[in-house]
Simulated scan of single mutants.
Amino acid sequence: MKQLFFIYLIFSVNCFSQESIRAIAKDSIKLEAKSILGVDTSETLYYTTKDNTFFKKTKDTLITYSNFQLSEVTSANTFNPLKINLFYKDFNTIVILDNRLAEVFKIDFNTVQPYKNVSFVSTGFDNTLWIFNQDSQQLELYDYKTNKVRLKTVPIQSDILDLKSDYNYCYMLTENYLYIYSYFGSLIGKHKNKGYENLAFSKAHLILRKNDRLHILTKNGDKIRNIEHPNLLINQFLVTNETLYIYDSKILRKYQLKTD
Score class of each variant (00 low, 15 high):
K2E: 11
T74Y: 12
L141N: 14
E103K: 14
Y169F: 15
L82I: 05
T58W: 03
N85K: 10
I180Y: 08
K152W: 13
I251S: 05
Y8C: 11
D166Y: 03
N117V: 02
H215D: 07
D143G: 06
R22P: 04
L233P: 09
N67D: 09
D248K: 02
D90R: 13
K83E: 09
K59N: 13
S66H: 05
N117T: 05
L233G: 13
F54T: 00
N235L: 07
S17V: 11
K145Y: 11
L238V: 01
E197G: 07
L163M: 04
N110S: 10
L4K: 13
A102P: 07
W130E: 04
Y247A: 01
F125E: 10
D212I: 02
P230S: 04
I7F: 09
H215G: 01
V239D: 07
F184I: 13
T61Q: 13
T128W: 02
L129H: 10
Q157Y: 12
T146L: 15
E175Q: 15
L257Y: 00
T153P: 10
N226S: 12
T259L: 15
K148E: 14
K164Y: 03
S12L: 15
K223S: 13
P81D: 07
A33N: 01
D51A: 05
Y167T: 11
L37W: 08
D260M: 13
G38W: 05
D126P: 01
T128M: 03
S182E: 09
